[in-house]
Computed example of a mutant assay.
Amino acid sequence: MYDVFQQYLDDKIVLTPAEKEKIRACAVVKKLRKRQYLLQEGDVWKYDAFITQGCVRTYSIDEKGIEHIIGFAIENWWTGDRESLLSGKPSRFNIDAIEDSELVLFTHANFEMLCGAIPALNNMVNQILQRSFIAQQNRIQAALSFTAEEKYLQFIDKYRVFANRIPQNMIASYLGITPETLSRIRKQTAKK
Rank of each mutant, 00 (worst) to 15 (best):
I13D: 07
V14E: 13
L15K: 06
L15R: 07
T16M: 09
P17V: 09
E19M: 10
E19L: 04
E21L: 14
K22S: 15
K22I: 00
I23Q: 02
R24Q: 14
C26R: 12
A27R: 02
V29Y: 11
K30E: 12
K30W: 03
K31A: 14
L32A: 05
Q36D: 15
Y37E: 03
L38K: 08
Q40G: 05
Q40I: 03
Q40D: 01
G42H: 06
D43W: 00
V44K: 05
V44E: 05
K46V: 07
D48Y: 04
D48I: 13
D48V: 15
A49M: 07
F50V: 10
I51V: 10
I51E: 07
I51L: 14
T52P: 05
T52K: 02
Q53L: 12
T58I: 14
T58G: 09
Y59Q: 01
I61M: 13
I61K: 08
D62W: 02
K64S: 14
G65R: 02
I66Y: 02
I66C: 08
E67N: 11
E67K: 08
I70L: 10
G71V: 02
A73R: 06
I74R: 09
W77E: 15
T79I: 14
D81V: 02
S84W: 03
S84Q: 07
L85P: 00
L85T: 02
L85S: 03
L86H: 09
S87Y: 03
K89P: 01
P90C: 04
R92Y: 13
R92Q: 13
F93E: 00
N94T: 00
D96H: 06
A97R: 07
A97H: 08
I98K: 00
I98C: 03
E99Y: 11
E99F: 09
D100A: 14
S101W: 09
S101R: 00
E102Q: 15
V104R: 01
L105V: 03
F106M: 07
T107W: 05
H108T: 08
H108S: 13
A109S: 15
N110R: 00
F111K: 00
F111V: 04
E112G: 12
M113R: 13
M113N: 12
L114V: 09
I118L: 10
P119F: 14
P119C: 04
A120I: 04
L121V: 05
L121R: 06
L121M: 12
N122I: 01
N122Y: 13
M124A: 06
M124T: 06
N126W: 10
N126E: 11
Q127T: 12
I128R: 08
L129C: 08
R131H: 13
S132P: 05
S132Q: 11
I134Y: 06
N138C: 03
R139W: 05
I140W: 05
I140K: 03
A142N: 01
A143H: 09
S145D: 01
F146N: 02
T147Y: 05
A148C: 06
E149R: 14
E150R: 10
K151A: 05
Y152T: 11
L153C: 13
Q154T: 12
Q154Y: 01
F155I: 09
D157S: 15
V161D: 15
